[in-house]
Design a protein around this nucleic acid. Structure first.
Length: 774
DNA sequence: GATAGCCGGGG
DNA sequence: GTGTACGGCTATC
């Protein structure tokens, strides 16, 4: 039969080790298969004479010879995966050990050439034991998966929920239908009322089973919902059977995070995906809360409730709570559906399971792919570095990219160029690889600006795999042009996944825990990068452009004649090595560059541009922070818009003055003045404003838990700021001076400082020192 | 400006 | 369970 691998785990049955495959057939059936035929092993770099000594090590079943990278190694086969670490450690006295720190399941996937989420041919006997398993060609789409999501609410009046004592009060689910399990009655069809918490956990488990869920989605279920429910099940003696067996959720540490796995279903934690998107810059948000992410990604608002009000709403029997809980489950499922195609493609590109791919860092994705390809090429997979080595690598930074610092100010007619995939194209064009470096003098080589020599005669693993990735992306983008509907969106997800992986290779060369770390390769890449961008800038100046700014792989030029822009691009591309290309990103009628700090000269990485469609592109500015009042945030945004759309600095200053006047006149609405800060344990020597506000509230008998998100206003009463701070609900007036001097002015000075304005200048409306022509 | 230490998401 | 792994921001000197 044809099938797709949804998940795989290790099993031991009748003292035999093997893997359990979770498979999805094209007809939509989800099924299981077992394979006990794969033996764990590791390699030793030692002479055959050591065979007998190695055989005597506990757990060793057999010793064979094998070849890697054209050299002989001893292959030590163990009976069980769990014996490998001890056996490898014992074997290390006979020779250096390799490929011993590769998880059994991963080794299985590599050696059997099985790619998760990609088509396979499987044959199994009646008991599910695999008799044939091989990969099939092609990029067939995964059959559609049955998805469900859930979100829990807890009763925690004393602060952060404690699963040992605070009960779970609601479980909202979204699948083929929305159902909410709780112990109170609510006037909604989607609510299922049960008698006890125990019954709630069990009814929820049944629901997930009845839905025959393949992918169970959560938002931070790895660290919150699933461990919490597991503990509640323990406390209430409930059967929490969320998998396809009787087993409880399975918890495991993955680096510094916990993961929660289910038996026979994929636990898809959307928060992991979202934080990954945030770290690669595909999602730019100051906070990754479910409501903010939902609004940013899908453009829809969520039912909202203050977290601290949940227990009160429960006590009151407020029906709003049920709606809120459901909407969290619904939005979680929608986000999961939005990101799943990309994660499936990342799993296919990297060769890791959906579970692992959706929790992987970029380095892990690249490493998985390289390990696979190295094995296919018969090359030795290098070891991970020892702790000391990793620390030494981390402590030795290399010279990075070139940045041309711009003159702060406002500019018109800007053409922005980017080198397409600069670092990947440098790696490929110059055969940058830890194995090709160090080419002998006289041999044909690419020589980096730092003098490192990369042999041309054999193509390295890294450039080979990277060109394969870029070519696959090119093919996917080409196929997209004629594809429609689902096929098109699958191709789009695929090209995006390939882009993410391609862009991670350079970082992987310098990642401290990389198996293929090479400082020399990394610094050669940036050196070539600096060379190409500087050469291009020099040529731009020769061609009569003003080079405003440049950073790593992008160049911003000010032009007088638009026709020259395309001519310049053509001329540059004619001289670049094959695979390298300068692209015109966009034309911007206006842009501003801002100094990093007041007084600091440069404006590194801090700019805002507006294109011909009026779309604003902002880089490097502090994102909207919750601990700024709305009046400060809004004024900053308005100033930026006036500058970009109208190019009128005076008008921007006038707007700020109006805001200042309103504040002084006391007509600014109170809700624009609220500052939100998370209450944290602090030393009481320096009292923070939020702590001042909380202490006052507590004195008045209001219960404010530790770690609350506190909303306060700075009032007129008191001497210090913390004395003046008062909870937003009870604040009657506000301190205009504070809002002018500590909120609005600092926010706008980040921008207007670039135009020579200082605090007094804005207040008085006059221009300051050395202004340009605007 | 360096560096140590904290925190994310969840209720 | 062959593995024990992050990175950005802030406070503080």
């Amino acid at each position: 039969m044809k099938a797709f691998l949804l998940d795989i785990d290790y099993v031991m049955r009748k003292n035999r080790s093997g893997v359990r495959l979770l498979l999805k057939t094209p007809t939509g059936k989800t099924t299981r298969a077992y394979d006990y035929s794969f033996e764990p092993y590791f390699l030793v770099d030692a002479d055959e004479k050591k065979t007998d000594a190695l055989k005597k090590i506990a757990g060793v079943k057999r010793v064979e010879t094998t070849e890697r990278s054209g050299r002989k190694f001893l292959k030590v086969v163990c009976t069980h995966p769990s014996e490998v670490p001890m056996a490898a450690s014992a074997a290390s006295m006979h020779g250096k050990t390799y490929e011993n720190a590769i998880q059994y399941v991963r080794r299985y996937l590599i050696d059997r050439k099985i790619v998760p989420c990609a088509p396979l041919e499987v044959e199994a006997d009646e008991e599910g034991a695999v008799t044939l398993l091989r990969p099939l060609e092609g990029h067939d789409e995964m059959p559609s998966l049955r998805m469900a999501s859930f979100d829990i609410e807890t009763y925690n009046p004393t602060g952060i929920p404690d699963a040992k004592k605070d009960p779970c009060i609601m479980i909202g689910c979204s699948a083929s239908k929305d159902v909410l399990f709780t112990t109170k009655k609510y006037p909604f069809d989607f609510v299922k009322t049960v008698a006890t918490e125990k019954e709630m956990l069990e009814a929820f488990s049944s629901f997930i089973r009845e839905e025959r869920t393949d992918v169970l989605c959560t938002y931070n279920g790895d660290e919150f919902d699933l461990p919490y429910l597991a503990e509640r099940a323990k406390q209430t003696k409930a059967q929490l059977r969320l998998g396809r067996t009787k087993a409880m959720p399975f918890f495991k540490r993955l680096g510094l995070r916990n993961t929660s796995r289910l038996n026979g279903r994929v636990h898809f934690d959307v928060f992991n995906v979202v934080s990954f998107m945030s770290t690669i810059g595909a999602l730019r948000l100051p906070r990754l809360s479910l409501d903010m992410v939902y609004e940013e990604v899908l453009g829809k608002k969520i039912e909202d409730i203050a977290k601290l009000e949940i227990w009160k709403a429960w006590d009151r029997g407020d029906a709003h709570l049920a709606k809120y809980c459901r909407s969290d489950a619904v939005s979680c499922l929608e986000l999961a559906k939005h990101f799943l195609p990309l994660e499936i493609e990342l799993a296919r590109v990297s060769g890791t399971t959906l579970h692992d791919a959706s929790r992987a860092t970029t380095g892990q994705l690249v490493e998985s792919l390289l390990m696979r390809r190295a094995a296919e090429r018969g090359e030795l997979i290098p070891n991970k570095p020892e702790q000391a080595e990793a620390e030494a690598r981390q402590a030795a930074p290399i010279q990075g990219a070139f940045v041309k610092i711009p003159e702060p100010g406002i500019y018109e007619n800007i053409a922005v160029f980017d080198f397409r995939s600069l670092y990947p194209s440098i790696i490929i064009s110059h055969n940058v690889d830890p194995e090709t470096i160090g080419c002998a003098e006289g041999e044909d080589a690419f020589v980096s600006p730092l003098g490192h020599r990369f042999c041309k005669n054999r193509k390295g693993l890294i450039p080979s795999v990277l060109s394969e990735v870029l070519e696959a992306r090119f093919a996917a983008k080409k196929a997209m042009k004629t594809a429609e509907g689902d096929a098109r969106s699958q191709l789009d997800a695929r090209q995006w996944a390939l882009k993410i992986v391609a862009n991670s290779f350079y970082g992987y060369l310098l990642y401290a825990r990389s198996r293929w770390y090479s400082r020399e390769c990394g610094e050669s890449v940036t050196a070539w990068g600096r060379h190409y961008i500087q050469e291009t800038m020099r040529k731009a100046e020769e061609a009569g452009f003003k080079v405003l700014y440049g950073d790593t792989d992008s160049i911003m030029l000010q032009y007088t004649d638009e026709k020259k822009v395309m001519e310049f691009q053509k001329a540059i591309n004619a001289e670049l090595p094959e695979k390298m290309e300068l692209e015109l990103e966009d034309i911007y009628p206006r842009g501003i560059f801002v100094a990093k700090k007041q007084g600091e000269k440069g404006a590194k990485k801090k700019y805002a541009l507006i294109n011909r469609d009026g779309k604003i592109k902002i880089r490097g500015f502090e994102l909207v922070r919750r601990d700024w009042s709305r009046v400060a945030r809004r004024t900053q945004k308005d100033v930026l818009e006036i500058l970009l759309k109208e190019g009128d600095v005076k008008k921007a200053v006038a707007l700020v003055r109006k805001v200042v006047e309103d504040l002084r006149a006391g007509v600014t609405p109170m809700e624009d003045l609220v500052i939100h800060t998370q209450l944290r344990k602090k030393n009481y020597e320096v009292k923070s404003p939020e702590l001042g506000a909380v202490e006052k509230a507590r004195k008045a008998g209001v219960r404010v838990p530790d770690n609350s998100l506190v909303s306060y206003v700075i009032t007129k009463t008191g001497k210090t700021i913390s004395e003046k701070a008062e909870m937003a609900e009870t604040a009657k007036d506000y301190d205009a001076d504070y809002y002018v001097n500590n909120q609005v002015l600092p926010a706008v000075l980040k921008i207007l400082g670039a135009f020579g304005y200082d605090e007094d200048g804005i207040k008085l409306g006059g221009r300051q020192k050395g202004l340009g022509s605007w």
